[in-house]
């Protein structure tokens, strides 16, 4: 089984996770830039973070045979802090990088005017750079937030075919599907979605344009939820091909629109890439 996790924050995870993910079948992932838990106070903090997503983290992933790509953006929560807004002006130099496969994650947090501005500006940046956009739906007031998100997408220059709406659930999937966007579901231990509910959604709405991710980060989350969902799909009667479509071909098709996916990650044991992460002072 081959798995592509289209949304996971590996910066917050350990090498044990990489090892377990590879063993579970994960061969590729996308790490969206996001809020780090502690608010940042200057654009430079973002630039170092983006550099990490374009440097150290793909190197770590390659040690474990996993192809690492990222999305960069000013996230909605920090778009509300004027000190962080200059990030928007600097994004173009990051959006041309080989490993950047989308603008994201963008969207709404508290649905403020500042978030309106950042979302619209970054959808335009995606259109300008020929990139898809990863748009998350808010945790609070989700249905209203998603409707407003879809309105902003419709008003933007970006084709809904190039938009992935994420963190969907039973209450938002129908309208999200009607929008023409791709549909993302984050499978969590306690919150968001779980694997059995996901299987029910797939039974009701089919496997087309459906993406499943772990969205694992620094909170209570599980980087193997992609595999658990695949197993739950098989147990519920879905075929191997259905699983491959949802867990591999759909994310490859969506992020492939960037023209930048490189899925031939070095296998463990290669001369340069196969070394364990040594600390130079062990």
């Amino acid at each position: 089984m081959r798995i592509f996790d289209p949304h996971i924050h590996m910066t917050s995870r350990t090498t044990d996770d990489y090892e377990a993910m590879y063993a579970a079948g994960v061969r590729a992932l996308v790490e969206p830039s996001f809020w780090l838990g502690q608010p940042r106070t200057s654009p430079e903090s973002f630039f170092d973070y983006f550099d990490s997503l374009l440097g150290w983290e793909p190197f770590r992933a390659a040690q474990y045979g996993i192809a690492h790509h990222c999305t960069v953006a000013l996230n909605p929560k920090e778009a509300n802090d004027p000190r962080c807004l200059p990030v928007l002006d600097a994004l173009p130099r990051f959006l041309v990088k080989d490993n950047v496969v989308a603008v994201g994650e963008i969207g709404y947090d508290s649905m403020t005017p500042a978030e309106d501005t950042a979302l619209a500006a970054q959808l335009q940046l995606a259109a300008d750079h020929g990139l898809p956009a990863l748009v998350h739906t808010p945790h609070r007031d989700k249905l209203t937030g998603m409707r407003r998100t879809i309105d902003v997408v419709r008003e933007s220059a970006l084709d809904p075919e190039l938009v992935l709406l994420d963190h969907l659930n039973e209450t938002t999937v129908k309208e999200a599907a009607d929008s023409g966007c791709w549909l993302g579901f984050s499978i969590y231990p306690d919150t968001k979605m779980d694997e059995d509910r996901m299987v029910a959604v797939l039974k009701a709405h089919g496997t087309e344009k459906m993406l499943v991710n772990s969205a694992a980060d620094w909170g209570k989350s599980d980087p193997l939820k992609t595999r658990r969902t695949a197993d739950a799909m098989l147990a519920a009667g879905f075929t191997d091909d259905d699983v491959d479509q949802v867990l591999w071909r759909n994310p490859v098709a969506f992020y492939g629109r960037s023209g930048r996916l490189q899925l031939d990650a070095a296998a463990p044991g290669d001369l340069h890439e196969g070394n364990s992460i040594l600390r130079g002072g062990e």
Binding site: P86, D89, P92
Partner: peptide
């Protein structure tokens, strides 16, 4: 300047 708004 590293944070210039213009594209490279």
């Amino acid at each position: 300047t590293p944070t210039a708004p213009s594209s490279p």
